[in-house]
Design a protein around this nucleic acid. Structure first.
Ligand SMILES: Nc1nc2c(ncn2[C@H]2C[C@H](O)[C@@H](COP(=O)(O)OP(=O)(O)OP(=O)(O)O)O2)c(=O)[nH]1
Ligand SMILES: [Mg+2]
Ligand SMILES: [Mg+2]
Ligand SMILES: [Zn+2]
Length: 579
DNA sequence: GCCGTTTTCGGCCCGACTGTTTTCAGTCG
């Protein structure tokens, strides 16, 4: 899949063009790159199937950029890119990636002091050379040194599951400030994106002087105050890999809706809305919609802002500039699946393999979740490190769960499952003799992630041929920030799943979220049915189902697309279960 | 470089904070 490679090249070209003070092109390159990054199809396939014309159907990609994409697919590089790289000192890119340093300052540093790397920058700053340059000063020099220190610590986006509790804690602290009427998490966190670059918080403040900004910058564990103003402040908070930037924006009641809209984003969604406002002869910013005379048209709540712009309000999960604005205008927004729609969880482990709780503890926890059914799905024998079950133990568990089914009858339906390994040759870890005794067979790849795309596709496709298979678990195998997805022809697998009525999993484990939002949407479009499962390894994990629901929502999924929103009777039909 | 029920040319979102500045450019959200 060349999507990310091409996006990276376009980003780099944008940076170089910006250094050369070229107007508009940089944003055009970046906008195209952002769209290419979020494509659900390998861009080389888009090209093979539809040529240049298909490429230009990607928003932000026109004739010129399409030609460049074609060139990259055919030759592995883009001449224009190579040419641009040659025109600019190599290390300047890493300079503009430092927060606070942009193209103008970086270029100045290069021209005055021949600085083209972070090492040289640090040296010059220590020697006091920076402060002497026109346009820089003591403060700039200090800030550069600070920024370099902070950048040395590794910088990764935080998992939603990690950032959300941190954000909630901060919100609770800020609630204690004077004059706070309302406080909301915004940004990518409110859109429930799988990872977040920072935590964005919006507070509605009543009255003139609130102490919220003072409280904010002196929160426990604040490592750096990046900016502090009357309307917006930014801090770095937390330790090591959990260190994260927090942006706080405050606003008055009459503008709260517009501000929430602005601060929720995403950026491209905002820009599209602002263009619509312009078309209507208005101006949209974080204070509201205003007409030519500066009179406020809307602002107090989000619904009103969207309504005046000619569309329905939409859930934050959809606001990614992926067609939601058009859908909202045409009244075609999906009716997104909700947490309360979920009737059961079909993937969880117990102390029979690598879970920490007993079968019965999991059952009781599921009853507490209000579920109608669950499926116990411990590992099969190949998963030695996970204490996978061999045939003998599998048969034993079947006996135990039979008892449980009886014991909990009327309270919850307990299904007998197993997370069966797909072996490297595509065969399953158990013979049909065992599989046919299970209520639900789900299958997973847990080994040889580095196979070629062809091998992996063949391997999984073969597994899906087994007539007992009902669910394909975590179909891309990624671990966010840790392991890339394996190479596989997902579209092909989706066709098989659709035709054979096999469900694909949205694994809710916060570090998996697999399928992800983009593929969930593609699955829906292809008519593949999905299940949202937690893959719990303890009773505490069952609540992560919320994260999977968020992925589904970001993938435009409705209740009908998710099989475990169905009653057990309907589920049996949908998956053709023999129970 | 992209894009179009007001345009195939001429626009391209709009505002906060900082630092070094005598009135604003640069960077970021
Ligand atoms: N209109 C407009 N809004 C912006 C711009 N940049 C950011 N925003 C808005 C939309 C963003 O969702 C919101 C918060 O900015 P962030 O940089 O934190 O982005 P976001 O939270 O979406 O993603 P992140 O996970 O933090 O990288 O501010 C911009 O250039 N123009
Ligand atoms: Mg953010
Ligand atoms: Mg932010
Ligand atoms: Zn599992």
């Amino acid at each position: 899949m060349k999507n990310l490679e091409i996006a990276a090249i376009f980003y780099e070209m944008a940076d170089i063009l910006e250094l050369q003070n070229v107007k508009w092109k940089p944003e055009a390159y970046r906008k195209a790159a952002r769209q290419i990054e979020t494509l659900s199809t390998p861009i080389e396939e888009v090209y093979e199937k539809g040529g240049i014309k298909a490429l230009t159907e990607i928003p932000g990609v026109g004739e010129k950029l399409a030609k460049k994409i074609e060139e990259y697919i055919k030759t592995g590089k883009i001449k224009e890119h190579e040419r641009l790289k040659g025109e600019i000192p190599k290390g300047l890119n890493e300079l503009i990636n430092l927060p606070g340093l942009g193209p103008k300052k970086a270029l100045k540093l290069y021209k005055e002091l021949s600085i083209d790397s972070i090492e040289k920058l640090e040296k010059a700053a220590r020697e006091g050379k920076i402060a002497k340059i026109e346009g820089f000063g003591e403060k700039s020099e200090e800030n550069i040194l600070k920024t370099i220190e902070l950048a040395k610590k590794k910088e990764e986006r935080l998992l939603l599951g990690v950032a959300l509790p941190i954000a909630e804690e901060i919100v609770n602290e800020l609630k204690k400030a004077k004059g706070v009427r309302r406080i909301e998490i915004a940004g990518s966190l409110r859109r429930r994106k799988e990872t977040v670059g920072d935590i964005d918080i919006l507070a509605e403040i009543e009255g003139e002087r609130s102490d919220i900004m003072d409280r904010f910058v002196s929160l426990h564990n604040v490592k750096e105050v990046i900016a502090k103003g009357p309307k917006k402040s930014m801090i770095l908070i937390g330790e090591g890999e959990y260190q994260i930037q927090v942006d706080l924006r405050i606003i008055e009641r009459e503008s709260f809706g517009a501000a929430l809209q602005y601060f929720t984003g995403n950026k491209d969604h905002n820009i599209e809305l602002r263009k619509i406002a312009i078309q209507k002869g208005w101006k949209l910013n974080e204070y509201g919609i205003f007409d030519k005379q500066g009179r406020m048209v809307a602002g107090e709540n989000e619904e009103e802002v969207y309504k005046k712009l000619g569309m329905e309000w939409m859930p934050p999960e959809l606001r990614e500039n992926q067609g939601e604005i058009k859908a909202a205008i045409e009244n075609k927004l999906p009716n997104l699946v909700e947490l309360s729609d979920i009737k059961g969880d079909l993937h969880m482990h117990t102390d029979w393999s690598d879970g920490i709780n007993s079968i019965e503890e999991m059952i009781n926890a599921a009853i507490n979740m209000g579920y109608e059914y669950i499926c116990i799905s411990d590992h099969s024998k190949s998963q030695r490190i996970a204490n996978g079950m061999d045939e003998e133990r599998m048969l034993k568990q079947i006996e135990i769960i039979k008892e449980m089914k009886r014991k909990y009858k009327g309270k919850i339906t307990v299904l007998q499952g197993c997370e069966v390994d797909i072996k490297p040759d595509g065969s399953l870890d158990f013979e049909d003799e065992i599989l046919k005794k299970l209520d639900i067979v789900s299958v997973s790849v847990h080994s040889r992630f580095k196979s070629s795309k062809e091998e992996m596709t063949k391997r999984i496709a073969r597994a899906l041929e087994n007539k007992y298979v009902k669910i394909l678990n975590h179909p891309t195998g990624r671990l966010i920030n840790e392991r890339e997805p394996y190479e596989v022809d997902l579209e092909y697998l989706m066709q098989i799943c659709r035709d054979r009525k096999i469900a694909m999993e949205i694994n809710s484990s916060p570090s998996r979220l697999d399928l992800n939002d983009i593929y969930a949407r593609k699955a829906k479009e292809m008519g593949v049915k999905l299940v949202i499962d937690t893959d719990s390894h303890s009773v505490d994990h069952l609540r992560y189902i919320q994260y999977g629901v968020w992925v589904a929502r970001r993938g435009w999924c409705e209740k009908e697309d998710i099989l475990n929103t169905q009653s057990i009777e309907k589920l049996k039909k949908s998956l053709n279960l023999k129970i």
